[in-house]
Design a binder for these strands. Structure first.
Length: 425
RNA sequence: GGAGAGAUGGCCGAGCGGUUUAAGGCGCAGUCCUGGAAAGACUGUUUAUCGGAAACGGUAACAAGGGUUCGAAUCCCUUUCUCUCCGCCA
């Protein structure tokens, strides 16, 4: 959520930021609504002031054993009704302004490249070389089914399309990837948390999924709960409505979770394999930092995500997303794209973003500045560290052998207990 | 699912229609005292928002929302959460 004061005082800056996102939002209408809100508040406060002083008079008289005059009581009765009416109006106006604010995206950072679509994203660096094959590399779903570690047919029998079923060494490999990610991030100062997968509306609003992206979420309406699309939601909301201690910052969390996405609007895209499933595993990195540190912390967070790809020997590139392609809550995002030999292209495997105070304001998450003794909103960041199913897929595609077997990357072997997945005879 | 108890400031805890400006304590900060410290004394110590250059002042907040009342932390209703007991289930 943007600060209404920022919008009032620097409306051109905000308009400019939204223009870079190709967003048409009538901010003048919002300011008009907010003016109205302020006028109603001023009215109510005047009325309450009068009520408070006159009621005090009544109380004083009663304590002295005297009866207050009827005129005074009548006047107060009238005030009560007036205040009640105005309060109803205020509630409506406030809801209107808040709902408006909750649907405005964050404004892009100055360093975010300006552009319209993913075609305008900028390659920041390319790390590692795609492996060379003297045969035609297969897609991961072909490899996995042949090895008996992936079974999409039965997954769709059980649940439908866009679900995966892991079997045999596939299960061990998935668990190995998760453990490897968590252990590696913990060595770099992240604290591990395991959080609920079902969260309430307030949490979804806090990180920005609601109210605008309801149709992207799996819902349990009977219980007013939502399945998390990423651990970002539950981990970031750990500190909703809290005031953090300056000396504890930055706070860094690593969290494994299953993630659930309806993928509404992506019909026909990536229908095969592990790339775009309704349910998938992910290790997420989340940071709470001082505002002055967030730019630097985004670079470090991205490096931490890159680190696991480097250790796995997966070639990747870092993309700076352009203003038209960054997410609703983000000011700046780096995507890590892993090389997929079967598809002969780079695919997103991590997305690292700096939200600045956008989520913190929605969540009311503050910190007390030790030097100034003032409270302010923290900055939040997060990034995948990294997507587990997609890592599984890149390993199959990049480490496949001509005979159909898959070699396990060195760093995973102590977790899997085997160093190759062989084709069953 | 049933029955009951509860939710008050950073923390503990009183208050159960109007001098609450939320007692008292702990903690924290400052001043005095001291060679230094402890102890002691005194002073201060929430947040949001509006007005104001500031000092300061208004308004709101005692889990959340609604109601009763001239006036609600206090009475009534609903919801959420915590705890205890019973039942059911793993």
């Amino acid at each position: 959520m943007l600060d209404i004061k920022l919008i009032r005082e620097n409306i051109d800056v905000v308009k400019d930021g939204l223009r870079k996102r190709n967003q048409e939002i009538n901010l003048d209408e919002l300011v008009e609504q907010d003016n109205n809100r302020r006028a109603v508040i001023a009215d109510i406060e005047q009325l309450r002031l009068k009520r408070n002083t006159d009621s005090e008079k009544v109380g004083k008289l009663k304590r002295e054993g005297k009866e207050p005059e009827k005129d005074l009581i009548d006047e107060l009765e009238k005030l009560r009704v007036q205040i009640q009416d105005k309060e109803k109006i205020l509630a409506e106006v406030e809801t209107k302004v808040e709902d408006f604010l909750l649907r405005i995206p964050n404004i892009p950072d100055e360093t975010t490249p300006v552009g319209k679509s993913d075609k305008d994203n900028v390659v920041v660096r390319v790390v590692g070389e795609p492996p060379k094959f003297n045969f035609k590399p297969k897609h991961h779903w072909e490899i996995g089914e042949k090895l008996g570690i992936l079974d999409f047919e039965r997954a769709s029998k059980i649940s439908g399309s866009r679900f995966a079923l892991l079997k045999n060494e596939g299960c061990a490999l998935e668990r190995a990837i998760i453990s490897f990610f968590l252990d590696t991030h913990k060595e770099r100062g992240y604290k591990e948390v395991m959080t609920p997968y079902l969260v309430n509306r307030a949490s979804m609003r806090g990180t920005g999924q609601l109210p605008k992206f309801e149709e992207d979420l799996f819902r349990c309406p009977d219980d007013q709960l939502y399945l998390i699309p990423t651990a970002e939601v539950s981990v970031t909301n750990l500190h909703r409505d809290e005031v953090l201690d300056d000396k504890d910052l930055p706070i860094k969390y690593a969290s494994y979770s299953a993630c659930f996405r309806r993928e509404a609007g992506s019909y026909g895209k990536d229908t095969k394999g592990l790339i775009r499933n309704h349910q998938f595993n992910k290790v997420e990195l989340v940071k709470f930092v001082r505002p002055e540190d967030s730019a630097k912390e985004l670079e470090l967070l991205t490096n931490d995500a890159e680190n696991v790809l480097q250790l796995l020997g997966i070639p990747y590139r870092v993309m700076a997303l352009c203003s038209g392609d960054i997410g609703f809550s983000s000011t700046k995002t780096y995507d890590l794209e892993a090389w997929m030999s079967g598809e002969n292209m780079y695919r997103e495997i991590s997305s690292c973003s700096n939200f600045k105070d956008f989520q913190a304001r929605r969540m009311n998450c503050k910190y007390k500045n030790a030097a100034t003794k003032k409270r302010g909103f923290v900055h939040t960041l997060n990034g995948s560290g990294v997507a587990v199913g997609r890592t599984f897929a890149t390993i199959l595609e990049n480490y496949q052998q001509e005979d159909g077997s898959v070699v396990i990357p060195e760093v995973l072997r102590k977790y899997t207990g085997f160093d190759v997945i062989k084709v069953k005879k």
